[in-house]
Amino acid sequence: MTEQPTPLWEVFIRPRNGLTHRHVGSVHAADATLALAAARDVYTRRGEGLSVWVVPSAAITASDPAERGMLFEPTESKIYRHPTFYEVPDEVGHM
């Protein structure tokens, strides 16, 4: 007898002092309510979380690792986007 699979959900947690949600792993659950409960029960037992997101794994579109060069390397040479590229004299103060 083959059993129907329970959907996979990716879990994102924003920690107590954090600013952004971080991917911490996944859980299996039949629906969003149970997924949220599972995420809370599995990934926040040591007070890690202040906010939890669960997303069906099937809903996530990821960039293709093989296209890493095309997608991300061009940005590496455009260092003028970074504040450290520009020199501002110290006397001007913080900018």
Partner: peptide, 11 residues
Amino acid sequence: AWVREAALAHA
């Protein structure tokens, strides 16, 4: 098994 099936059926 019946528990897992129930959750899926409800969903």
